[in-house]
Write a protein that binds this DNA or RNA. Structure first.
Length: 575
RNA sequence: CGGGGAGUGGCUUAGUGGUAUAGCGCUCGCUUGGGGUGCGAGAGGUCCCGAGUUCGAUUCUCGGCUCCCCGACCA
């Protein structure tokens, strides 16, 4: 591709609303422009990378035996009512009406459509298992789009859906896609990790997230250094802590005045007690019912765990009025002592760690007062102990007990084992060998294509710009002619024709620009290999080669060009 | 959805109760030619929209829209 005929509008400065490095570089390198909040235009260079990503995913899924389809972005309301998600899905689902006043939505995902499609044509166990995938635009009306295309409202993704006749076959498909994902992310050149994850609004039994490891990642990941268990921290289970080592004598409870000391930090300072001695009480509203949760002072509640434990759809911090209503004291002074008497109807839960507290400190349910020497078991008994805290340093792996390491990641893929949630609702059934009608067992699998692109940049860049992993680079070689005419230009033209004929993806910078401009642009757009033809070396029959990542250039003769290139570029990867 | 901030040529911005600054980018000429060359000449703006205050508003006030940040939310 000749740059003089191509469109790569690079910028010296990133627009001020680009908030992370990948977004800045994507604007600067001329990959994207913004149309509206969370909605982007993809320019030629960006689209080229998308196509690279798409091709790799397609190859691996085809190999795994999936069939590509193309599903609608505009989907009818009835379909979503059938699955129950029209009511369940919040404002993220963009809804609208057509001229006949029929309801539609823009696809945030395609379970409904695909399940219906399969239900219509598949009726026998002999036709199963099946797995379909598609690439398509998705729209989710995110509350707060940010991080460039990483959290956009409109984005491009690959979604796949498997249908099986029994558990075993369903699990086999899950594994097959999982394995394909591993291959795909390896081919992308990612440092990544597949972690256990929450199933969220998609529902289903279990799921894995594929995380690209990057400090800027939105998700925290807990990794067990010993057994390899890893999970999104928001889902990480924790081994119940060991009981305290007896020794300490239980002291008698004693009220102390703690005027205006509400937060744990203030209390730690005021009472000279370490945070792990505190028993804090939070009051939550779970599907309309108040629930009290006890945690150690230093710990944070994991709302997902709470929701799961209660089987609730929603769980949010209760307002101050609910607080005072229940405890008859200002927020900040709630505690378990006498709680049952004050609010017998309110469920009292405690995190496992609370059980280990000896002679702790708790709110007295009396404004400006706390109680010292509170001991669970003796002074109060919660309705239940459970694993409710957010995993943090010092917590043990649920499998082997080793202490977790923490790292951050960008979610680029997600696999779900769905079970029969959609097939049952939408009547995707088949007859088995014994003439019994059964719902198909489904799985669904996504890869955020546009997010993969951003993650690649987030993981691989330097001060000068993007450094594309080989497999995702929009071009293999950037060929720079330092003169706009004469011998240098002629030679460069010739090399361009030759390399293109050999199958390399060559971006040929034949513009009438200063060398500095060309070098800066080449670095910014991050093409892995660079060839430069100039007056200095041409008389010696040489050109310059430099890898994007290399600190220094090499000098090759024109005769050895092909042979040397062959060593640095795997031609099967080139287009 | 709560809290905060911002909208000034394509991009980044200065500034002001009397219609506007600079850099980059763009056009033209010369210059330069291995890391965003230098000089000169230009083009380009309803200062987000609407209302109000005022002799006069881009500037002050109110409302709206859009964008950004923090939180909550989220395959």
């Amino acid at each position: 591709m000749k740059l003089s005929q191509y469109y790569i509008p690079t910028l010296k400065e990133a627009p001020k609303d680009a908030d992370i490095i990948s977004a800045k570089l994507m604007f600067r390198a001329g990959l994207i422009r913004k149309t509206a909040s969370g909605v982007y235009e993809w320019l030629p260079l960006g689209l080229r990378v998308i196509k690279k990503i798409e091709n790799i995913i397609r190859e691996e899924l085809d190999k795994a035996g999936c069939c590509e389809v193309w599903l609608p972005v505009v989907q009818p309301q009835e379909l979503w009512e059938e699955s129950g998600r029209w009511a369940q899905y919040g404002k993220e689902l963009l809804r609208f009406k057509d001229r006949k006043d029929s309801g539609f939505c823009l696809a945030p995902t395609a379970e409904e459509v695909i399940t219906k499609m399969v239900a219509k044509d598949v009726s026998s166990h002999k036709q199963l298992p099946l797995c379909f995938y598609q690439f398509g635009t998705k729209f989710r009306d995110e509350i707060r789009p940010r991080f460039g295309v990483m959290r956009a409202r409109e984005f491009y993704m690959k979604d796949a859906y498997s249908f099986a006749a029994d558990e075993q076959s369903a699990n086999e498909w899950y594994q097959k896609v999982y394995d394909a994902y591993v291959k795909i992310f390896e081919r992308f050149g990612f440092k990544f990790k597949a972690v256990e994850a929450d199933t969220g609004s998609i529902g289903g039994n279990f799921s894995h997230e594929f995380m690209v490891l990057a400090q800027t990642g939105e998700n925290e990941i807990s990794v067990c250094p010993q057994c390899g268990y890893s999970a999104n921290t928001e889902k990480t289970e924790i081994q119940p802590p060991a009981a305290p080592a007896a020794a300490e004598t239980l002291l008698e409870p004693r009220e102390v005045s703690t005027p205006d000391k509400r937060t744990i930090a203030e209390l730690v300072d005021f009472l000279k007690q370490p945070p792990e001695k505190f028993i804090k009480m939070l009051i939550y509203n779970a599907d309309g019912n108040p629930v009290a949760v006890l945690l150690r002072g230093e710990d944070e509640l994991n709302e997902i765990k709470l929701r799961k434990y209660l089987g609730a759809n929603e769980a949010a911090k209760a307002g101050a009025d609910t607080y005072t209503d229940i405890t008859r004291s200002a927020p900040g002074f709630a505690g378990p002592l006498g709680f049952k008497q004050k609010a017998p109807a309110v469920k009292l839960l405690a995190d496992n760690y609370v059980k280990t507290i000896v002679n702790g400190v708790a709110g007295a349910n009396n404004t400006d007062t706390h109680v010292l020497n509170v001991n669970p078991g003796r002074d109060f008994e919660p309705d239940a102990y459970a694993d409710l805290k957010l995993a943090s340093a010092g917590d043990g792996c649920p499998r082997c007990g080793a202490k977790f390491d923490f790292t951050r990641g960008i979610e680029v893929g997600h696999t779900f084992k769905l079970g029969t949630k959609y097939s049952a609702a939408m009547n995707a059934v088949f007859l088995d060998e014994t003439q019994q009608s059964k719902p198909m067992i489904m799985g669904c699998y996504g890869i955020g294509v546009t997010r993969v692109l951003a993650a690649a940049i987030e993981q691989s860049h330097d001060d000068n710009g993007i450094i594309w992993p080989t497999a995702l680079a929009p071009f293999d070689i950037c060929l720079i002619a330092l003169d706009k005419e004469g011998e240098v230009k002629q030679k460069a033209d010739e090399i361009y024709t030759r390399l293109t004929a050999l199958g390399y993806g060559v971006l040929y910078d034949d513009r009438d620009e200063r060398p500095g401009v060309k070098f800066k642009d080449a670095d910014l757009i991050g093409i892995p290999h660079r060839l430069v033809i100039g007056r200095k070396l041409l008389p010696e029959g040489k050109l310059e080669y430099k890898a994007r990542v290399a600190p220094k250039a090499d000098f090759w003769t024109f005769d050895e060009l092909e042979e040397k290139l062959n060593k640095v570029i795997n031609i099967s990867n080139a287009r």
